[in-house]
Amino acid sequence: MRPFESENLILRQLADSERLALDSILKPFNLPRGFEIARSGMPLGHCYFLESGIASVVATSPEGRKTEVGVLGREGMTPPILTTDAERFPFDVTMQIDGHGHRVEAAALGGFLADRPAIRRLLSRSLHTFFAQMANTALSNAVHKIDVRLARWILMWHDRLDGDEIGITHDYMARMLGVRRSSVTEALHILEGEHLIYSTRGLVIIRNRAALEAFAADAYDVAGITRRDRPEIGRRPLASAGGIISPV
Rank of each mutant, 00 (worst) to 15 (best):
S124I: 02
A118S: 15
A210K: 15
I244R: 13
G178L: 13
L22N: 10
L26D: 06
G193H: 11
D23L: 04
E5H: 05
N8L: 10
V148A: 09
A217Q: 06
F29T: 09
L122T: 01
S61W: 11
A118I: 06
I54P: 03
A135K: 02
V248T: 11
G202N: 14
A132G: 02
M42Q: 07
K27R: 15
A151F: 06
L113A: 10
V148I: 15
S40V: 02
G101Y: 04
S182W: 00
R2G: 02
R19D: 00
R160E: 04
T129M: 13
F29Y: 15
Y48E: 01
A211W: 02
V93E: 00
I146T: 15
F112A: 04
T129C: 11
S246E: 15
A107N: 11
G73V: 01
L31H: 03
L150T: 10
H158G: 10
L109G: 00
R120H: 09
A216C: 07
I166L: 12
P28A: 12
F131C: 03
D23H: 04
W153D: 15
D115C: 06
T226K: 10
I54E: 02
Q133C: 04
R12V: 00
A108L: 12
A135R: 06
D162I: 05
R103S: 08
V71C: 05
A138E: 13
A211S: 12
R201L: 02
R88D: 02
T137F: 13
L9D: 12
T67D: 04
A239G: 15
L150R: 05
L26M: 14
D229G: 05
R33A: 15
E165M: 05
L26I: 09
S52C: 02
L20T: 10
M42I: 01
R230Y: 06
H189D: 09
A151G: 12
S24P: 00
G110Y: 14
